Computed example of a mutant assay.
Amino acid sequence: MSDMFVEKFRGLVPQYLEEPWQKADGIEWADLDNVFSELQITVPLALREFLHAVGNNEEIMEAYYYFWDPEELEIEDGYLLFLEDEDEAYTWGMLADQAEVPDPIVWRRNNATGEWINEEGTFSEFVFDMLEWVFTEED
C-alpha cells in the first residue's frame, strides 16, 4: 500500500501541537481494516491514511469539528460521513460511490434541510485547510 499522505498527516502533530508525532497518535492498518470490514464499507485512501496517522490524537480529531472514529463512519444519502460540527448542524462526507478515488471531493450537508454543498476541495485539502484555520485563528 502506498502512503500518499501519511507523512503529511503525521506532520500535523508537530506543526500544530508542538510535540513529536508518536505511533500512539495513529491507528494500526490492521485495526482499520477490521473495522471497515465489519462495517462493510470502502474508505478512500486519504481518509484511511488520516486515521492511520492521527486517528487516536484527540487534539487533532476534535480540534474544532469532530472527526468520527473509524467505527462511527457510516453511509447515508449516498455519502460516506466522517465529520460533524459541535452543534450537529452540519455533517461532512464524500460520495460513497467514489470510495476508490484516492482523495475524493468533500461535501457538506446542512442537517436541517438535508441539502448537500460541494466544498470544492479534496479530503486532504479540506483537512489541511481546516486545521490551518483552526490552529492559526486569531483570538
Rank of each mutant, 00 (worst) to 15 (best):
Q40L: 01
V43E: 01
Y64W: 14
L32M: 05
D25H: 05
S37H: 12
D33G: 10
F67L: 07
E84Y: 10
L32E: 00
A63M: 07
K23R: 15
L39Y: 06
G55T: 02
L73S: 09
W21R: 03
A46C: 01
A30P: 12
L83F: 01
A53V: 10
G26L: 03
E62T: 13
E49A: 06
E74D: 10
D77Y: 06
D77M: 02
Q22S: 15
L73K: 02
A24G: 07
L47F: 04
D25P: 09
D85W: 06
L32A: 06
E71G: 03
L51S: 04
P70T: 05
F36T: 03
E28A: 14
A63E: 11
S37V: 12
V43T: 10
N34I: 15
T42M: 11
I41S: 08
I75A: 05
E59K: 13
D25F: 09
F36V: 02
S37L: 12
E74Y: 14
L47A: 04
Q40H: 10
P70F: 02
H52E: 13
E72S: 14
L39A: 01
V43L: 06
D31L: 15
N34F: 11
G55R: 05
A30L: 15
G26H: 11
Q22V: 12
P44E: 05
I27D: 04
A53L: 00
G26E: 02
I41K: 10
N34C: 14
G55Y: 09
S37D: 09
L73V: 06
P44D: 07
D25V: 07
E84C: 14
A30V: 13
G26M: 07
F36R: 01
L83A: 03
L47D: 04
E59G: 01
N57E: 09
Y79V: 05
H52L: 07
S37P: 05
G26A: 05
E28I: 11
A30W: 11
F36L: 00
E84G: 14
Y66Q: 15
E71H: 12
L39F: 00
L73I: 06
L83G: 06
D25G: 09
R48M: 02
A63L: 02
P44I: 02
Y79E: 08
Q22K: 14
E49Y: 03
A63Q: 05
F82M: 03
I75D: 10
A63H: 03
E58C: 03
E28Q: 13
E62H: 13
L81I: 14
N57Q: 11
I75M: 10
N34K: 15
I75R: 10
E62M: 13
E59A: 12
Y65P: 11
Q40F: 11
F36S: 07
Q22T: 14
A46I: 01
L81T: 12
N56G: 00
E58R: 13
P70Y: 00
A63C: 03
L73P: 10
Y64H: 14
